[in-house]
Design a protein around this nucleic acid. Structure first.
Lengths: 129, 129
DNA sequence: ATAGGTGCAAATGTTTTGCTGTCAA
DNA sequence: TTGACAGCAAAACATTTGCACCTAT
């Protein structure tokens, strides 16, 4: 089986994780980099990308991709649905209590579904006012 | 209102559309480019990208993004769900008769949903055998 | 005739990687 | 002590764009 290579907890990795978990936005690597520089001024963007990739592989965070833009990251690894506002550009979480997509739909897939993503696009409540 | 700028039907655009509609795979711009070169040897990749973008804006085709990899394109503009096989890498369509995600879920979104995407990941029937 | 499209190549923007020095365990 | 990780900068990769020429209308 795929043995986990030993991983160290560096202060850079710890900081990146703290920044990601301290926000409810779904920040880009670049935003995390800017925040991290406030604490570790000479941290590099490559380090941010490397650690985000490692933590994604560890299952501690999620990577969300929207179009060809920068990836966004989510400190909550539990599957949940997302809403992208076309006006303000924010990515919002669905209420975690919303029921998941029905088994009927997933059963109709042309294969065995391991996980799924539901992404909704529209105008968020704030922008509708 | 957003007036449509007049668009020409060039042989490049026509060919790109024909190639895209003649396959059930969900090809990348690069694959379309390779196919198109068989008919118009000096067509450029930039032209392929430009026309795919125009046709997407015209609502004639769909663009599907998966992670940071190349975008894939779909000649069927009707909303439908996709299944990504993690083994063979193919992107398969759900049966078009599968019911859509329930209104209950969409109504719980933090905004007004214009459209949604459901992407399932797993192992396709062919690879399971 | 002419505005919009094409080919080409350079530019862009994001993410990855090679290298060398550093530090967590 | 030492191998995994950091910083740095260059490379890689998909996609976009500027420009001069071409062509569908």
């Amino acid at each position: 089986m795929a043995e986990q290579k030993q991983k160290r907890m560096t202060r850079q990795k710890k900081l990146i994780y703290e920044i990601l978990c301290s926000t409810k936005s779904h920040p880009t690597a670049d935003w995390i980099y800017e925040q991290a520089r406030k604490q570790i001024p000479d941290i590099s963007l490559g380090t941010v990308y490397r650690n985000l990739q490692v933590m994604r592989e560890e299952g501690r965070i999620l990577e969300l991709s929207y179009g060809k833009n920068q990836s966004r990251f989510d400190g909550n690894p539990k599957p949940h649905y997302h809403f992208v506002c076309e006006k303000c550009g924010r990515v919002l979480d669905f209420d975690p209590d919303v029921p998941l997509v029905s088994e009927d739909i997933l059963a109709a897939a042309p294969g065995m579904v391991k996980y799924h993503r539901l992404e909704c696009y529209g105008i968020c409540h704030d922008c509708l006012q």
